[in-house]
Simulated assay, not measured.
Amino acid sequence: MAVEMRKLLTVITEASIERQLIKDFQQWGVTGYTITDARGKGSRGVRDAGWDVSANIRIEIVCNDALAHQVADNMRKKYYDNYAMITYIADVEVMRSEKF
């Protein structure tokens, strides 16, 4: 089984900015992503999705190293000051690497 290395960029943020993030991803060269609902507690308190204002999402993007860091930096510049958002990048092994 052939595997190749890619980066997994994970973003956890407010659901209210999902549509804008999707537009930004397209402009920044992201070709695919997965979005799921997320709940938890952090520096901005409990985010339990009990109502739309407190809903969070988790976005996962598998891509090359350069794109992962570019997207993370763009999000830092555009969103960090005004929205609850964390990002992290991890190494992942992928099959069907042509998909990423």
Results as ranks from 00 to 15, higher is better:
Met1Asp: 07
Met1Gly: 13
Met1Val: 12
Met1Phe: 05
Val3Trp: 09
Met5Asn: 04
Arg6Trp: 00
Arg6Pro: 00
Lys7Gly: 04
Lys7Ser: 02
Leu8Lys: 11
Leu8Pro: 03
Leu9Phe: 00
Leu9Tyr: 04
Leu9Gln: 01
Thr10Gln: 11
Thr10Pro: 03
Val11Ile: 15
Val11Glu: 05
Val11Gly: 01
Thr13Tyr: 06
Thr13Met: 06
Glu14Leu: 03
Glu14Ile: 08
Ala15Lys: 12
Ala15Ser: 15
Ser16Asp: 13
Ile17Gly: 01
Ile17Asp: 03
Ile17Glu: 06
Glu18His: 02
Arg19Gln: 14
Gln20Thr: 07
Gln20Ile: 12
Leu21Glu: 11
Leu21Trp: 09
Leu21Gly: 03
Ile22Ala: 03
Gln27Trp: 00
Gln27Thr: 10
Trp28Ile: 00
Gly29Arg: 00
Gly29His: 04
Gly29Pro: 02
Val30Lys: 09
Val30Ala: 05
Thr31Tyr: 00
Thr31Lys: 11
Gly32Arg: 03
Tyr33Gln: 09
Thr34Gln: 07
Ile35Cys: 04
Ile35Trp: 03
Ile35Asp: 03
Thr36Cys: 05
Thr36Gln: 10
Ala38Thr: 04
Arg39Gln: 15
Gly40Arg: 01
Gly40Cys: 08
Lys41Pro: 08
Gly42Ser: 06
Gly42Arg: 08
Arg44Asp: 11
Arg44Thr: 13
Gly45Arg: 08
Val46Ser: 04
Arg47His: 15
Asp48Met: 09
Ala49Val: 05
Ala49Asn: 14
Gly50Leu: 12
Gly50Met: 10
Trp51Asn: 15
Val53Ile: 13
Val53Thr: 13
Val53Cys: 11
Ala55Ser: 15
Ala55Cys: 12
Asn56Val: 00
Asn56Lys: 08
Ile57Asn: 07
Ile57Ser: 07
Arg58Lys: 13
Arg58Ile: 10
Arg58Gln: 13
Ile59Gln: 00
Val62Pro: 03
Cys63Asp: 10
Cys63Tyr: 01
Cys63Asn: 08
Cys63Trp: 02
Asn64Gln: 04
Asp65Lys: 10
Asp65Phe: 03
Asp65Thr: 03
Asp65Glu: 14
Asp65Tyr: 08
Ala66Ser: 12
Ala66Trp: 11
Leu67Arg: 10
Leu67Cys: 06
Ala68Glu: 06
His69Tyr: 09
His69Trp: 06
His69Gln: 09
Val71Cys: 04
Val71Ile: 11
Ala72Lys: 06
Ala72Ser: 14
Asp73Ile: 07
Asn74Met: 10
Asn74Ile: 10
Asn74Trp: 10
Asn74Phe: 05
Met75Lys: 01
Met75Gly: 05
Arg76Met: 13
Lys77Val: 07
Lys77Ile: 08
Tyr79Phe: 10
Tyr79Val: 05
Tyr80Ala: 11
Tyr80Ser: 13
Tyr80Ile: 08
Asp81Tyr: 02
Asp81Gln: 13
Asp81Cys: 04
Asn82Lys: 08
Asn82Cys: 04
Tyr83Ala: 05
Tyr83Val: 11
Tyr83Cys: 09
Ala84Tyr: 05
Met85Glu: 02
Met85Leu: 13
Ile86Glu: 11
Ile86Pro: 02
Thr87Ser: 10
Thr87Met: 12
Tyr88Met: 03
Ile89Asp: 04
Ile89Thr: 07
Ile89Ala: 00
Ala90Tyr: 01
Asp91His: 06
Asp91Ala: 01
Val92Met: 05
Glu93Pro: 02
Glu93Trp: 14
Val94Leu: 00
Val94Arg: 02
Val94Met: 11
Val94Ala: 10
Arg96Asp: 11
Glu98Arg: 12
Glu98Thr: 09
Phe100Arg: 01
